[in-house]
């Protein structure tokens, strides 16, 4: 691909990217913890309201759809080592997972045609929230705008 004199690709933004001043580790971890507990909260705390709201909507909608499709939420069961990975994926969504567990949702109906999709939705909702937290960590540390 042809590049300009500055080494930029055609159509790319030549303006310098504005990075924020890095926060200290305690503040960063507090923000990330908030983002784990409530999806999107970390970006809202960093002042990125719209992005945070979109993240919250995506993760929570995916989680609710997963429950609606009779997906299964996994607990931490040491007798079943492979379930630990499923648990880690599930717990990534934070408070909604804890709430659903408390309300005895996410039992998982294997006879339902949407069971596999529902379970996958529940896993991916948690995994997406981990990615969102990592993104917030980078923003808080001033590595990306």
């Amino acid at each position: 691909m042809e590049k300009s004199e500055q080494g930029l690709e055609p159509g790319s933004n030549p303006e310098p990217v504005q990075l924020r001043r890095p926060l200290n580790l305690v503040a960063t971890l507090a923000i990330c913890s908030g983002g784990w507990l409530i999806p999107g909260l970390s970006h809202m705390l960093l002042g990125k309201w719209i992005r945070g709201l979109i993240f919250a909507a995506c993760v929570i909608l995916m989680f609710v759809l997963g429950l609606g499709m009779h997906g299964k939420l996994f607990n931490l069961v040491f007798e079943e080592p492979l379930q630990i990975f499923a648990f880690i994926a599930n717990v990534g969504v934070g408070a909604p997972y804890l709430l659903a567990e408390r309300m005895n949702l996410g039992v998982g109906t294997m006879t339902a045609t949407t069971y596999d999709y529902g379970t996958t939705y529940l896993w991916v909702a948690g995994l997406l929230n981990y990615l969102i937290i990592l993104d917030a960590f980078d923003i808080a540390k001033g590595r990306k705008p």
């Binding site: 759809l65 939705y121 993104d135």
Partner: peptide
Amino acid sequence: AVFALLVATVFALI
């Protein structure tokens, strides 16, 4: 389609 839409939105914003 719903799965792809939600994941694509998060990936794009990240």
